[in-house]
Design a protein around this nucleic acid. Structure first.
Lengths: 198, 198
DNA sequence: GAGATAACCTAACGGACGTTAGGGACTCTT
DNA sequence: AAGAGTCCCTAACGTCCGTTAGGTTATCTC
């Protein structure tokens, strides 16, 4: 009995397919029949692994946060400002280098129905809390009440890169992370000195 | 012969409903039957005003850009840095103060099918071009090749405010615009001096 | 007042959707 | 060898979707 050329188990293949479809189509337009076909099984068989479409996508969104948290926690840098840059780089890495789950989360979370979003909020909060603590650590002068807003502005810049950045371009992810970090800390006058356009 | 309590004509009411539904549900989850009900007509009657669902939403997305362009062009400020701040404020105004069309565009554009997006790209390009010119004017030292990236980072911060900012909160839109502008120009160390948390 | 046009209706079409019931094949445990 | 559990299948259900054909009413034009 030869190999079936489908290495990963069925449940995992469905999740992978869901993450990729989510990025390009959003929640409502991604159908179970598509995911089943992508994973090499039939639509009804999806229900062997997941109780419903909602539960399936909750798993995808949560995995997306897991990837971000793992990337965040893998950073070990002493110098505060350098540490911030490393975390920016890690977040972008989660978006572009560790599968589609984080990208799916960032692009499709707000297209999911409220019941699905509600199940994912606690994990999101945990990740946001890590960033608030980081900001408190790196910028002791930043008022505590200002941290969430500051974080949201930075997240806005980082997360929307999935709409236009491509790893295949001339700009590397390291470059992008350095530019975003510099822009965030010192503003436009400093950021464009990082690496001139060619 | 009393008034029908539905002032706007049918086509306009359908467009308004579409913009609002788009913000909360995205493209695929917004159905013509919903829009018809919102507008006080029947589903089939939508086809008197629009040839297809796609055409309807193209009109909504284009109107979203129109609102942004009108807000942009209404700015008349001499001082370069002040002008930038006024444009940031105008962009946020388009998002929050001039109906749901711009918000619908920003949140749902990437949830629309490719054929719909393709029809809207020229108008998007026009708006982006205005911003590139503005950046060139305000920051002559910024390399020309760097303008699109810089604009995308600023757009990322501004556009994702629709995911968390509410006019009813304690932070005003003027405050938010000032913070974003300061953060963009001078970075975090300057931005938090604009207005301390209370 | 005849004719055109606009704005809306009813009723239905084919198709796709999430979901379910019930069964077959295979592996592991005892 | 029996039983349980895992993984997947076929076939169908009720529902909703975008869209269309054909009809009604009211207004405007000449």
């Amino acid at each position: 009995m030869a190999d079936t050329a489908l290495p990963a188990p069925g449940r995992q293949r469905v999740l992978d397919a869901a993450a990729e479809r989510l990025v390009q189509q959003g929640y409502a337009a991604t159908t179970l029949r598509q995911l089943a076909a992508d994973a090499g099984i039939k639509a009804g068989s999806v229900y062997h692994h997941f109780a419903s479409k909602e539960e399936l996508f909750i798993a995808v969104f949560n995995r997306g946060i897991e990837v971000m948290v793992e990337a965040f926690d893998s950073v070990e840098v002493a110098d505060p400002l350098e540490r911030l840059g490393a975390h920016v780089r890690a977040h972008l890495g989660a978006l572009f280098e560790h599968g589609s789950y984080t990208a799916a989360h960032v692009t499709a979370f707000f297209t999911a129905p409220p019941e699905v979003r509600a199940e994912v909020v606690p994990q999101r909060d945990e990740y946001e809390h890590r960033w608030n603590d980081l900001l408190a650590d790196v910028f002791p002068d930043l008022p505590a009440g200002r941290r969430p807003l500051t974080r949201l502005l930075l997240f806005g810049s980082m997360n929307t890169t999935i709409e236009w950045f491509h790893l295949s371009g001339s700009l590397t992810l390291d470059d992008l992370a350095a530019i975003i970090t510099s822009q965030f800390i010192d503003g436009i006058h400093a950021s464009h000195l990082i690496r001139s356009a060619r």
